[in-house]
Nucleic acid binder design. Structure first.
Ligand SMILES: [Zn+2]
Ligand SMILES: [Zn+2]
Ligand SMILES: [Zn+2]
Ligand SMILES: [Zn+2]
Lengths: 137, 137
DNA sequence: CTTGACCTTAGTGTGTACTCTAAGGTTTAT
DNA sequence: ATAAACCTTAGAGTACACACTAAGGTCAAG
């Protein structure tokens, strides 16, 4: 399968596929005489692995690690795989916590402001940001 | 106050201050004869506004908008300020939702894996990512 | 046999918020 | 007078995941 068809089957761009190849995430097994990439069923499976891993939040660098494990499963342990997953989960949890604080602060700010058409001279959002913290610890 | 002292009072780097100046977030009022930046009390207040706005999650571009409103309050409405705040809050909420899905999927994956020292040949994390989705809708 | 759709490469641009570097001028203390 | 510690600028580098460009080769249809 040439890159165009492969890309549209997977819903990604050809640029993305070339990018993945450059970064050693997916290298099509064969090239045609003309030098065109020729993707196989195996490549399709691997690309779906990549897309699923992306869907659960893994970065491309992390996916690369997972692929290396997948290629040589017997050289790696469950422990290793679970560690990657848990590390990622905890990182995500940290980011959620930060964003939740943002969300809380923004809600407090928004609730203080009347949102009317009058000039912002006394807008509580602005005065709160100007004055000493009514938001943080 | 010269940039070094100003920076350390605020807990930011001098690079950051020069970056903010370049991006029109904070331009110190005066320069000394030697061309050194000379920060005033007003600059200090403005920098604290910027840092507080950062602390609630606004990006530098958004803070720039807020500052422009703050400079000419009578030319802007509460409505405008509240809109910025609510838009940001909703964007943050969207990102939280996405990360929460990631977190959920990663938890499911992690729970499936024994995490032991044995080879990853039958690791459920890998097989789940290989096989047809047991994660997504 | 030519048009148009496809493919190739290498390289640049995007957005965010800095951080670092090079090459040089200024101030303060000894 | 000289060294240390500060300051200046412009510009490049970082991470992430691509998107886009130019300049050119290939393939199927009419
Ligand atoms: Zn109001
Ligand atoms: Zn208001
Ligand atoms: Zn196991
Ligand atoms: Zn496992």
């Amino acid at each position: 399968m040439k890159i165009g068809e492969f890309a549209s089957q997977l819903g990604v761009s050809t640029d993305t596929l070339r990018y993945y190849e450059k970064h050693a995430l997916l290298t099509p097994s064969v090239r045609t005489q003309a030098g065109y990439r020729d993707y196989s069923q195996t490549d399709l499976k691997q690309m779906m692995f990549i897309l699923r891993a992306k869907n659960v939040g893994f970065s491309l660098a992390e996916i690369k690690e997972l692929l290396q494990i997948k290629f040589k499963k017997h050289q790696h342990s469950c422990h290793e795989v679970k560690n990657l997953t848990i590390q990622k989960r905890d990182l995500v949890a940290g980011r959620i916590a930060e964003l939740t604080r943002f969300h809380q602060s923004l809600s407090v700010l928004a609730d203080k402001c009347c949102g009317g058409q009058e000039p912002a001279d006394n807008c509580s959002i602005l005065t709160t940001l100007e004055d000493i913290d009514g938001l943080n610890q």
